[in-house]
Simulated scan of single mutants.
Amino acid sequence: MPVVRHHGRIAEVLEQLGLLDDDRVPAFETWLLRKLEGITPGIRHDTEDWIRALHNGGPRTRPRGPNTVWHYLNAARPALLDWSNRYGHLREVTREDLLAVAGSLHGNKRRHTLCVLRSLFRHCKKKGVIFRNPTARIPVGPNQYHAILPLHDNDIVAATNAATTPAARLTVALAAIHAARTTDIGRLLMDDIDLGNRRLTIAGRTRPMDNLTHRALIDWLDERRARWPNTANPHLLINRVTAVRTCPVGRVWITKTFWGLEVTLDRLHTDRKLEEMLTHGPDPLHLTAVFGVSPGTAIRYATAARQLLDTPIERHDQRS
């Protein structure tokens, strides 16, 4: 049992010593093989070359994240399967085929699919395997964002009640008070915490620490010290798996407490930014200064706050 539990760590040590002969098939390869099933060989070859270029990067491009590659191929796959019934190569796909794909979709799904197919055909054009890019001059349209509305008080209470462990209570405080994203919470380092001066640094921005966050941090640090006193992991949040490593905890571990609830950590951080706009006025510059969001995001929140402030009855109905 101990060997099974620590096989990952043992493999790391053996690899550093040059003694590891890892003959396992990477998960990416099995996933790609499965996703390309049913696509005709000519189209499949160019699609696989495109996906590998996204995954591995190139001389002038950085590798895309696994989630991005996964979403790209999933978005393109329905069209590729449909074209495989009529064509043997991507060079046979016409502008009308792309317009048909666009006409069958709506909203952000249409925009995302067209952006993905544009990426595919640009790659093929760059490689010289197609004569012209059928996605040229087909507008993808603007992003259609969902309306930003404040959370119900009952939902916030449910999320607070679900946070029964020190780690979960800390994540709630970071999301609901400091508008921290789940990714940023997982990447927090011990060096980002300054208990003495009551300050913490989230995503490179230093913020004052309130009493609730201060108490949650102390509770978590006490548990962290008691359970893993000798860990070398520099991250603030750790678990039994990452305590013997130096990597951050996964997103699933951070969010699993809130599965099945209407409120997630991402919604808590969204609600916190909207609350800032409602309290201090719909000023995008203020939101950027406080939380470091991009100008476009700040404008979205300011617009949502302005609409809520202009319709007080509707805002009351959302909170009730």
Rank of each mutant, 00 (worst) to 15 (best):
H6A: 07
G8Q: 11
A11S: 13
A11M: 11
L14M: 15
L14P: 08
L20D: 14
D23F: 11
R24L: 10
P26Q: 13
A27H: 15
A27I: 14
R34S: 15
K35H: 14
I51N: 10
L54I: 15
R62M: 15
P63K: 13
G65I: 10
G65C: 14
G65W: 10
Y72A: 13
R77W: 00
L81C: 11
N85V: 07
G88Y: 07
L98G: 00
A100H: 00
A102C: 00
R110D: 00
L114F: 00
L114G: 00
R122G: 08
H123F: 10
K126V: 03
R132H: 07
N133K: 04
N133H: 08
P139D: 01
H146S: 12
A147Y: 01
A147R: 02
P150Y: 03
L151K: 06
A158P: 09
T164Y: 02
A167C: 03
L170N: 02
A173T: 09
A179C: 05
T182P: 01
L189E: 15
M190E: 12
L195Y: 13
R199F: 04
R199D: 09
P208W: 12
D210N: 12
A216C: 12
A216F: 01
L217D: 10
W220C: 01
W220P: 01
W220Q: 05
E223I: 02
A226E: 09
W228S: 03
A232E: 07
H235W: 06
H235Q: 06
L237A: 07
I238K: 03
N239Q: 03
R240M: 05
C247I: 04
R251S: 11
W253V: 09
I254D: 02
T255R: 07
F258V: 03
E275L: 02
E276W: 02
D283E: 12
P284L: 03
T288I: 12
G292A: 06
R300S: 09
T303V: 08
T303L: 08
A305H: 09
A305G: 10
R306V: 02
D310A: 10
E314Y: 05
